[in-house]
Nucleic acid binder design. Structure first.
Lengths: 68, 68
DNA sequence: ACATTATGTTATGTTTACCTTACATTTTAA
DNA sequence: TTAAAATGTAAGGTAAACATAACATAATGT
C-alpha cells in the first residue's frame, strides 16, 4: 500500500492544507485525502507536492507491504 | 507538461511492453499510453515502474514547461 | 517466406482521482 | 472568551486513469 509523509512535511513548512493546495493547483480536500492515504495521486501532483515540500517524490511517497 | 523516459529505459533493460506491464500489474496498453505521454499515471504505478527500471521516480518522470 | 512476438492504435466500459458544496469540529489568535 | 482559520468528513458529479477487446502493422527468428 501507498504511504506518504505529506502531513509531516507540510507541518514542517508551516503550510496549511489550503496553502499547499493552492501551490499545487488542487483543493484542500484533495490534500486531506492524500494525507489520510485515501488515494494515490497522479505522478504530476506528486511531483508538484515534492517540489513545494522540497523533497524527492521517492522520499514523499513509498510502497509498503499490505498487512492483511 | 509531464515527460518521462520509460520507453528508453525499458529498451535498455530489453523489456517488452508486455513484460513491464506484467511486472507492474497493468496492461500493455497502459504502458504504451504512458510512453506516449498520453496520461499521468498514479504515483503508485510510477513507483512500481521506477523500481523495475531501477531509477527514482524523479529520474523517470519530470515536469516541463508548456510550449504555448 | 513464414510464424511468432512486439507494437500502434482505436473504441467502449469501469474505476477512481479530483472537484464542488456543505456542515461540524478543532485549533489559533485577538 | 469569542471570532476566525484550519481541519475532518461526507455526498454527488465530472474527468481521467486504466481495463478489455480487437485489428493492423512492424520487427524478429527459424
Amino acid at each position: 500500500m501507498l504511504k506518504n509523509k505529506v502531513k509531516e512535511l507540510r507541518a514542517r513548512h508551516s503550510y496549511s492544507q489550503i496553502h499547499l493546495a493552492a501551490l499545487t493547483g488542487v483543493t484542500r480536500q484533495t490534500i486531506g485525502f492524500i494525507e489520510k492515504g485515501e488515494f494515490s495521486p497522479s505522478v504530476t501532483l506528486a511531483l508538484k507536492l515534492s517540489q513545494h515540500l522540497q523533497v524527492t517524490v521517492d522520499e514523499l511517497f513509498w510502497l509498503e507491504e499490505e498487512k492483511n
